[in-house]
Design a protein around this nucleic acid. Structure first.
Length: 552
RNA sequence: GCGUGAGUAGCUCAGCUGGAUAGAGCAUCCCUCUCCUAAAGGGAAGGCCGCGGGUUCGAAUCCCGCCUCGCGCACCA
């Protein structure tokens, strides 16, 4: 029995009681689904619900009275061993070991499907993340989004959505010009221009441009600059794609801002918005009414000199996404861009869309710490820590896990020295080790002649088994919550909980019999639980883009 | 100043949208491998959940007001 099944059964008991007139309560006070939770204290049963307390006020009846009424009905649910009314009106439910144990079989029958749902099926979701300028390698903040964004994409897919991972390349405008000038200066052996970029990668790329086109410096100045721009962006772009790929993140669409300007999409769109009245004219410029969405001032879209402001590209880009049929466009931005929320929503509104189809997730900053002291990073000075640096120091699995297990609302500090030590400071080892252990147990079981030819759910009656089963059972709802709250860290945290209960179970319940003791159905049944745990850990690690090793 | 995120154990952080005695990892101190992976497990210690009000049967969680820190606040991109 999964907590979902129990929840459904309780809901139906509640509805029976209402239609039988045993409980009188306004319809809108009755939840669609009664929530059950795992009590912290084992004395409070396997599962508990506070539904009686929730209904007490709207029903105008003491909570314990409602609890007593429900308690009688709940006792009739198949697999429920006992129900107690406790405290102010909690219903504490104990489940038969046999009913709880069947979950192990259910998980193995569902295999990779366990933990997925069709809640978002039919939804087309565009997830835009990283989107770092091609003026340098991906820094830590972008790396965080690469890990979190890709994981969120996997989680959405697991809920049935059709997800497009998208990367927006800001390859247009002044920053790119500075990048090109910096490359050119380096190629000529001159110092970086004011406001330009420095760093080893600039000379590397300059060298590569020169190597591919040795005579390029002899051309006319404009042509040289243009060549360095185009060739440099292309090389930087390829490097970025490659390091993301090595990080396990591949985008479905790499969208070039330049293409919006080159094919005239921006100017066509702006003309349309002007005539449709979505923009207004003031002080010689055309404005977007972003104050409707909490901005402190409206934003200029067409400057008084007639040229397009940066935001014009954003609007055109959103229009492009909309034309591709997405139901939801999610933007994952760094905290330094949180001022963009209002204008992106305003952009949707200007195009006549529901602003709720635009959803902006803000990720707080990632700081680099050395010996407990924050290190200042600067892209222009070339003192950034990049995705490649991080992966080089700790590996893909540890990097992805470390970045994904925290809420994006928290600033995080990355201490490279610490992570380089490869201690179990990093919980990824804890979870991966649990998975590796399940496979080791499986191998030993096979050697000892323990197989899954029998399954006696009632044999899984040890307290650590009840705990492990409960956490495995909660996994699907954790994934569902991770999707609806857009919080992949919930999956990571739950895997840590599962790993912990697995390790405890391992210490008290043996799958392989000791010495020359005979193999019994208890051993066989435990193998089911062992394998079910492996399945859930593997499914969860898959959602995080972290490998599930068979040996460590 | 305005907006926004954070403030929970010595450290890093969870806390399932209001529940029962607030959790985990690391660090510290005890203990457990002649038998499945000790990268593990058990135990101890460690807390005015930033502060002050409010809402109610019940608040770390919701509301209001402060305090501290991060990040933003261009006809730049």
């Amino acid at each position: 029995m999964t907590p979902e099944e129990l929840s459904i059964a309780i809901t139906s008991c509640l509805n029976d009681a209402i239609s039988a007139g045993e409980i009188t309560v306004p319809a809108d006070a009755v939840p669609a689904r009664v929530r059950v939770e795992r009590p912290k204290n084992r004395a409070h049963g396997d599962w508990a619900t506070n539904i009686a307390m929730q209904l007490a006020k709207p029903a105008g009846v003491p909570p314990r009275t409602i609890a007593e009424t429900l308690s009688t009905k709940l006792k009739g649910i198949d697999g429920v061993a006992s129900v107690e009314v406790a405290g102010p009106g909690f219903l504490n439910i104990t489940v038969d070991a046999a009913a709880a144990g069947t979950l192990a079989k259910t998980i193995l029958e569902q295999a990779e499907v366990f933990g997925t749902s069709s809640a978002l099926s039919g939804q087309q979701i565009n997830l835009e993340f990283v989107s770092a300028n091609p003026t340098g390698p991906i820094h830590l903040g972008g790396t965080r989004w690469a890990a979190v964004g890709d994981s969120l994409a996997r989680i959405f897919s697991a809920q049935g959505a059709e997800v497009t991972r998208e990367y927006y390349f800001n390859d247009h405008g002044a920053q790119i010009d500075r990048f090109a000038s910096s490359l050119l200066a380096r190629a000529k052996g001159e110092p970086a221009p004011d406001g330009g970029y420095a760093g080893q990668y600039i000379s590397d790329i300059a060298d590569r441009v020169l190597a591919a086109e040795p005579g390029v410096l002899d051309r006319e100045p404009d042509a040289v600059q243009e060549h360095f721009r185009a060739a440099g962006v292309k090389l930087m772009f390829d490097d970025i794609k490659q390091s993301l790929h090595d990080f396990g993140v591949d985008f479905d669409v790499y969208f070039h801002e330049d293409s919006l300007h080159n094919d005239g999409a921006v100017s066509v769109l702006l003309d349309k918005l002007k005539t449709s009245g979505s923009l207004y004219f003031a002080d010689g410029a055309w404005w977007l009414k972003s104050t409707d969405f909490g901005d402190d001032k409206d934003r200029v879209v067409i400057k008084s000199d007639g040229s397009a402001a940066y935001i014009a590209g954003d609007i055109a880009y959103y229009a492009d996404k909309r034309s591709r049929g997405f139901d939801l466009a999610v933007y994952m931005l760094g905290a330094d861009h949180h001022g963009y929320i209002a204008r992106l929503k305003a952009a949707a509104a200007a195009l006549g869309d529901d602003p709720d189809t635009v959803e902006v997730l803000i990720g707080q900053m990632v700081n680099l710490v050395k010996d407990g002291v924050p290190v200042r990073m600067s892209k222009r000075a070339g003192t950034v820590v990049t995705l490649e640096d991080l992966v080089g120091a700790v590996g893909v699995d540890a990097a992805r896990y470390a970045l994904t297990r925290f809420s994006v609302n928290s600033n995080i500090d990355i201490d490279l020295d610490l992570l380089t030590r490869h201690t179990n400071e990093n919980p990824v080892f804890y979870v991966q080790y649990a998975h590796a252990r399940t496979t080791a147990v499986g191998r030993n079981a096979a050697d000892a002649g323990v197989d899954r030819s029998a399954f006696d759910a009632g044999a899984l009656d040890h307290p650590t088994e009840s705990e492990l089963l409960a956490h495995l059972g909660a996994y699907p709802s954790v994934v569902a919550h991770a999707a609806s709250f857009r919080e992949p860290h919930r999956v990571a945290r739950h895997l840590e909980v599962i790993a912990g209960s697995y390790h405890r179970w391992y210490d008290s319940c043996r799958v392989v019999p000791m010495g020359d003791q005979p193999v019994t159905d208890v051993n066989r049944t435990r193998l089911w639980l062992n394998d079910a745990t492996r399945q859930v850990l593997a499914n969860g690690l898959g959602l995080l883009g972290v490998s599930a090793p068979h040996r460590m």
